[in-house]
Structures are given as structure tokens and as C-alpha cells.
Design a protein around this nucleic acid. Structure first.
Lengths: 115, 115
DNA sequence: TATCGATGCTTCAAATTATATAGCAAATAC
DNA sequence: GTATTTGCTATATAATTTGAAGCATCGATA
């Protein structure tokens, strides 16, 4: 039903399905990383809460990404709504450094003549 | 000309332009992370080499992503072709842990009944 | 100096994805 | 039982990506 890129199967970036490319294929979809980030920040939450925190995501997009992330074992549904799985939390931990880099990047862009 | 999401300006995921959301917006585009990854693996390389290593990217897509990554200061053109900037290398370093996670994830997916 | 191959793209139509808006069915709260 | 809230679905439109073809420029060679 919901199709996700899987290591070992052809994905964008690798016909043999290099794991990193499969992951990039999944995370490179619109909102994927944002959802993981927000879910980690605000903890277990309902669909509508998640939607509100993502500010401009459409329900169709949110729904699709959530389904993918569930099939991919990064997110699961519990009584309170949606949560990161242990693997999802690991993923989040790996994304954390990007938060710091993003700030540095923002400064560099400002100090730079726009192209 | 080439438009990229910038911290401080409205981006997907943040109307105020939270840096991490701007970065996710950029990296969440098709092939962005894959290009950074490949560029780091094979070092300075030509357009066609990059294209070959990305296995199935179309030149139009590669060109667009390269322009964006250059405007974003992650990639630059030198005599030998394209290279990561120092900031681009930092970005790569932050992506490295995802390589390990991807392998673990691949195993978890296999050991799991597919949904 | 003519031609060849390699390189760095551009073009364009077709397919895929994403967005925005409306709204509905089920569960809970009153 | 009526009103809210929640978790979506539907649908039309817009944006992005793909895939294939090909062109312009360059340096090397004949």
C-alpha cells in the first residue's frame, strides 16, 4: 500500500539499494525530516497538533509522510497519537548536529553577497 | 535566479525561517543529500562524473541541485569541476552518522514483517 | 585547420508529487 | 442528543522530477 525506498532495492541514487541512498530517498521527501524533528521536540502528539507545528503542511502530505515513516519504523501510533520509535529517536539524534550547522549556515549566507 | 530557502525567510516548516527548517527545505529536495554524499566520496569531479555516480539523476536535476548548493555555499566550482566547500564538508560530516544508521535501519526492515 | 570525443549543460513533453481547500465520519465532551 | 475535536479523504491545481534528445564549447589529434 504505502511504498517506501528500502535498502537492497533500487532507489534514487543507487540501483543496488545502498542503505544510505535508500535513507536519503526517504528523508529527501518533502517534510520527512521536519516531521521527525517536530515529533521529537513536542513528543507524542495528535495529527492536528503535528499539523499545527509544521505550520504549513497539508493534511494530505502529513498523512502520506506519517504512513511512510511508520512503515519505515521511525514513527509509531500509540494511544496519545504519534511518537518516534527508538529507531526514530536515533534518527533524530543524528539530525541534531544539523541544527547547529543550520545556524552557522544562516550566518554565512548573511555575510555573503547574495548570488 | 536560483532561489534557495534561507534562514530568516519563510520556508517549508517555518514561517519565520527557523534555520533548521530552511536547511531541511533545501536538503529535502530530491538528490541534495545524495550529491553532497557522492561529492565527498569521490572528491572534485566533473559534471559527467557526478552524473554517473548518481546513477540515475537527470542532467536537468543535477544542474538545478548544483546551482542551489552553490548559492547555498555548500558546493563550489573549481578548475577540476565541483567540490564541497568547507561548509559543505561540515555538512557531510554531519551526514556521516546517517550512513551507519541506514545500515541498522536496513536490518531492522528485513527482520520486520513488511506492512 | 578540420574533425573528433568529452564535457557541461539546455530543452521539452510526460509523469510524478505537493499544495490548498473543503469537508466528512467517528469518537469524545457536554 | 448536540457540539467539538480528531483523523483523515477528496479533488482540483500547481510545482517538481524524469527521460530522452541534443547542442555549444573546448582541447586533442590528424
Amino acid at each position: 500500500m504505502v511504498d517506501i525506498p528500502r535498502p537492497g532495492q533500487p532507489v534514487r541514487g543507487s540501483k543496488t539499494g545502498a542503505p544510505i541512498m535508500a535513507l536519503f530517498d526517504l528523508l529527501g521527501r518533502n517534510w520527512s525530516m521536519g516531521i521527525v524533528w517536530v515529533l521529537s521536540e513536542i513528543g507524542p502528539c495528535t495529527f492536528r497538533e503535528l499539523q499545527a507545528h509544521c505550520e504549513s503542511i497539508s493534511p494530505a502530505a502529513l498523512n502520506m509522510r506519517l504512513k511512510e515513516l511508520q512503515v519505515a519504523c521511525f514513527v509509531e501510533r500509540v494511544a496519545d497519537g504519534y511518537v518516534l520509535t527508538p529507531l526514530g529517536k536515533e534518527l533524530y539524534e543524528d539530525l541534531v548536529p544539523l541544527g547547529a550547522l543550520a545556524k552557522k549556515w544562516g550566518e554565512e549566507l548573511l555575510s555573503q553577497p547574495n548570488k
